Simulated assay, not measured.
Amino acid sequence: MGRFVRSPKDVVTGLLLIFLAAWFAWLGSDLPIGRAIRMGPGYFPLVLCGILAALGLIVLLTGLAFRGDVEADEDARRISIPWQGLVLVTLSVVVFGLTVRPLGLGPAMGLAVFISSTASRKFSIFNGLVMTAIMVAFAWAVFIKGLGLPLPMLGPWLGGY
């Protein structure tokens, strides 16, 4: 089998994506699917699982057909986990979840975006603040103005509601 696999990393990644798609489809199998004209709660997750499985199949076939990057294969032998980025992105999600009710959507989104932007090696305070302002404005435009969701921009801790 070793000579049929040209890029083991791509093959394993493709198999992992297909496995995850099948697992999530199985988890949502008790939800009613409905039809395209009248979608049930299980329709969209099933479509996403299908897309994930298709992408996994593409990655798997690519790993069987094409040789992977030699430098990437050498780097794969030296596995290094970017702990700083992993911790900061996870922290930003936790901070958003804990602060969205007391602070409101704007400050919670701002904190989450700024904290996650510090995970980049190319981080600068100016770029982080600009990205934060753009994302907060985008969230306001989409969720509050566009969709009309009843989310306060400022929570009770900041005088909102």
Results as ranks from 00 to 15, higher is better:
V70M: 08
V87E: 04
F143N: 01
M109Q: 00
G28N: 12
L48E: 11
L151C: 02
V87H: 03
L16E: 09
G56A: 14
R38E: 08
V113P: 06
R67L: 11
R38K: 10
G28H: 08
L98F: 15
T99W: 09
A119R: 00
V93C: 03
R101N: 09
L111P: 03
T99D: 08
L64Q: 06
I81Q: 09
T13P: 02
S80F: 01
P150D: 09
I18E: 07
T118G: 06
K145G: 01
L60C: 10
V136I: 15
F96T: 12
A53S: 15
T90M: 02
L149F: 12
D75E: 03
I33F: 15
R67Q: 15
P8N: 01
I37R: 00
L61C: 14
E74V: 04
L151I: 08
S92N: 05
G160F: 11
A133Y: 11
G128S: 08
L15V: 13
P150V: 11
V142G: 02
T118H: 11
V5R: 02
L52T: 07
P8D: 00
V12L: 08
V70A: 15
G104S: 03
L27P: 02
W23D: 03
R3D: 15
K145D: 06
K145M: 10
C49K: 07
I125F: 12
M1I: 09
M131P: 01
V136W: 03
G155F: 06
A133W: 14
E71H: 02
D75I: 01
V11E: 03
S120W: 06
V12T: 02
F143L: 07
A119M: 02
P41C: 04
E74H: 05
I115R: 03
P152V: 01
G56R: 12
F138T: 13
V142R: 05
W23V: 03
R101A: 04
I115D: 01
S92T: 04
F138W: 09
M109F: 00
S29H: 14
R77A: 13
V70P: 14
L98A: 14
P82V: 04
L86I: 13
K122P: 10
T90C: 00
I33V: 15
S124M: 04
V59D: 05
L129E: 03
L88R: 01
F143V: 04
P102T: 06
S124V: 02
G97V: 13
L46M: 12
R78P: 00
G159I: 01
R35Y: 04
L149Y: 03
L64I: 11
D73V: 00
F126G: 01
Q84I: 13
K9G: 04
I58Y: 14
A72W: 01
L60N: 07
M153F: 08
R121D: 11
L15P: 10
G97T: 12
